[in-house]
Amino acid sequence: MPRLHVDRLVKAYGTKIALRETSFEVRPGEIFGFVGSNGAGKTTTMRIILGVLAADSGQLIWDDRPLGPDQRRRIGYMPEERGLYPRMRVGDQLTYLATLHGLSPSDAKRSMQAWTERLGVAGHERDEVQTLSLGNQQRVQLAAALTHQPELLVLDEPFSGLDPVAVDVMSDVLRERADAGVPVLFSSHQLELVERLCDRVGIIRDGRMVAVDTVTALCRHEVPRWQVQGPSGTSWVPQSSALHVVASGDGVTTVEVADPRPGAEQELLRAALATGPVTGFGQVRPTLTELYRDVVAAPTEVTS
């Protein structure tokens, strides 16, 4: 399976610059989470990938070649603004969209039946889309992105507005597609979900990628932090230039262990045990939410 390489995209709307050399890569078989605040450039990037918008400069590489209309037809897309013909039947609609993506009518029909079944809307095949509940409309929307067996999935906020069950269905489908080798790119504001689901994450701010890496690589402190539960106060922490108390309270103490040698944290544990019972001891990692806040709230450089 090929990979998608987004290479230095630039896009301006009049005087407002939306993308400043945005670059990242979505690899085969991975789920790539695309996060950033509203207006940071996520939707613009996705629309450019789909060819719905044209970039001012930069390029998209797919399978070592520039992404063209015929390859774009092989992308499964879920636009931020959900859209289906309100007065068209679910089955007709999905079949039509699949044929527009190059499937034969019989393949389109078979695929439509398989996906409505899989996404739990098989009973609504003959209903008009506008009569469906919002959640079911979302499922049909996802089906529209999947019926043509896409080789790349680009989903703009696929989880917004979904109930917890639908979130699980969606997550399963994305994981399954990725396991089948399809690169999956999706944007979301639900960072816990992104952290749980994604192999890699890209954070965009003001049209520029400020962090692109695996979740584990991103979510760690520069100096490892260890948390000790049990001893109260901080007086028990050994006096050492390698140990620095970050937070303390309610018998929970968080300490930075600057000593890079493996097992350096054991000294801290021993000191705690010497004071009394220890009920918990472990490394703390920042959540994606914390990381995101740090990155996005960092002072903006002067831009024109």
Binding site: L50, R72, Y77, R82, Y85
Partner: peptide, 17 residues
């Protein structure tokens, strides 16, 4: 306008000109 107001047009334009 129906295609535009229902936003289905974005889905269509991802595959046809």
């Amino acid at each position: 306008v129906e295609e535009k107001s229902s936003r289905v047009v974005e889905l269509l334009l991802a595959t046809v000109r």
